[in-house]
């Protein structure tokens, strides 16, 4: 029943060194966990089990408590971000114009869940709140590129440009 990590952990010795020094700075302080998690996410980009285990060991708190905090706050991510970060707007305007179908199409083509990342590290997928481009609804973004007024049928052609 455990969620298997799709992307293998590629942490370096240098990152581990950095994390250890962050832990050492905060150890023994009340409420140390959240600042350590923030900095760990800056170091690694996300918070996989390997990183959470190092934090649990370092701060001497149960791993279940660390995971509980990580899953409570939306700014903490369990998954790495891909080379191409896809964001599908599920704000009200985009949603009524069919962005739900666009999201489903992307999930289907890339075999990807929301908040997930493809095994090759190329694409990650997020469902976002309104991004302020309602005039173009429905909208989705790939890194800095914005695609608006599209339908689910346009999705394969757009993704193909990045898949090569």
């Amino acid at each position: 029943m455990a969620k298997e990590a799709v992307i293998p952990f590629k942490g370096t010795a240098q990152q581990e060194e950095q994390l250890k020094s962050v832990i050492a700075q905060h150890k023994g302080q009340e409420g140390a966990l959240i600042p350590v998690l923030h900095q760990a996410q800056e170091i690694y980009g996300y918070l996989p089990i390997e990183v959470q285990t190092m934090i649990a060991d370092g701060l001497e708190v149960p791993l279940a408590e660390v995971y509980g905090v990580v899953t409570f706050y939306t700014q903490f991510s369990l998954n790495p971000k891909g080379e191409y970060k896809i964001g599908v707007c599920l704000g009200t305007a985009c949603y009524v114009k069919g962005s739900g179908d666009i999201l489903e199409k992307i999930k289907e083509i890339l075999n990807l869940e929301v908040d997930g990342c493809t095994p090759d590290g190329k694409f990650s997928l997020e469902a976002t709140r309104c991004i302020g481009a309602c005039g173009l609804a429905p909208v989705f973004t790939i890194n800095e590129d914005v695609y608006g007024r599209i339908t689910a049928d346009d999705v394969p052609g757009i993704l193909a440009k990045y898949q090569g």
Binding site: P62, L63, A64, E65, Y67, G68, F72
Partner: peptide
């Protein structure tokens, strides 16, 4: 002090 379980998500 086992800490095997905790509250997850929100």
């Amino acid at each position: 002090t086992v800490g095997a379980i905790d509250t997850m998500e929100r």
